[in-house]
Simulated assay, not measured.
Amino acid sequence: MPKIGMEPIRRKALTDAAIEAIGARGTMDVTMSDIAGRAGVSPALAHHYFGSKHQLIIESVRALLRDLRQDAEQALKNARTSRARISAVIAVSFSDKQFSDEVVAAWLAFYVDAQRAPEIRRLLSIYARRLHSNLMSGLSPLAGESDAERIAEGAAAMIDGLYIRKALGTGPARYDAVALVEDHIETQLLEIRGRTV
């Protein structure tokens, strides 16, 4: 008989294990047995909770998005200025948790799988819209709507590109990644200030 209250714990263990397994392999080519073994449960229990590997993968992407959203909300709550909001979004994107090797490799695998999995593509578009919105919340008061859109797109492209480079083993360290995106933002804001003087 299953223990009461264990389902949420086991579901989280399975989504964490899926991210770990996919990140370790750098591909979606993992089995429910691989994932269940990492989570310390039987493959039958993994199937019971999620039905299929595909459903477990989708829930794993959702789990990553929830973590990222919660981290961003907390960081933005503590940001006192518009410029601090931008820095908070950048810092969260490259936090130890988000920019770990296995999480970055898992994100890359999810992006590749999104080419043929509409549900994963939909979840990744939610991520992109949320990142854009969070960046705009700090940029719009400083740069105006049009310039803020352009700067936010550039910053988001840099963040995604730095994740890809990290997954390929050619990217900068976490602090250097933050500095590169911050430099992009500051250069763009300085240019706008120069135009208005």
Rank of each mutant, 00 (worst) to 15 (best):
1 M>E: 09
2 P>Y: 08
9 I>E: 03
13 A>R: 14
15 T>Y: 07
17 A>W: 01
17 A>E: 05
18 A>L: 06
19 I>F: 00
19 I>Q: 05
20 E>S: 14
21 A>I: 12
22 I>A: 06
23 G>T: 00
25 R>P: 15
26 G>E: 06
28 M>R: 12
29 D>F: 04
32 M>F: 05
38 R>D: 02
38 R>N: 04
44 A>P: 03
45 L>P: 07
48 H>S: 08
49 Y>N: 06
49 Y>M: 02
50 F>L: 06
53 K>A: 05
55 Q>I: 01
63 A>H: 08
68 L>T: 15
68 L>P: 01
69 R>V: 09
74 Q>T: 12
76 L>I: 08
76 L>C: 05
77 K>H: 08
79 A>N: 04
81 T>Q: 05
82 S>R: 07
84 A>Q: 09
88 A>L: 07
88 A>D: 03
96 D>H: 14
101 D>V: 11
102 E>C: 13
104 V>Y: 08
105 A>N: 11
105 A>E: 04
106 A>W: 07
107 W>F: 11
116 R>K: 15
117 A>E: 12
120 I>M: 02
120 I>D: 04
121 R>L: 07
123 L>A: 15
124 L>S: 05
128 A>H: 10
130 R>C: 08
132 H>F: 13
133 S>G: 12
134 N>F: 01
136 M>E: 00
136 M>N: 00
138 G>I: 00
140 S>N: 04
146 S>R: 04
147 D>C: 02
149 E>L: 07
150 R>M: 13
151 I>W: 04
152 A>H: 02
152 A>R: 03
154 G>K: 05
154 G>N: 02
154 G>D: 03
155 A>M: 10
156 A>Q: 07
160 D>H: 11
160 D>I: 05
162 L>F: 13
163 Y>I: 10
166 K>V: 02
168 L>R: 14
169 G>D: 01
172 P>E: 10
174 R>D: 10
176 D>C: 09
178 V>I: 15
183 D>Q: 15
195 R>N: 07
196 T>I: 08
196 T>F: 12
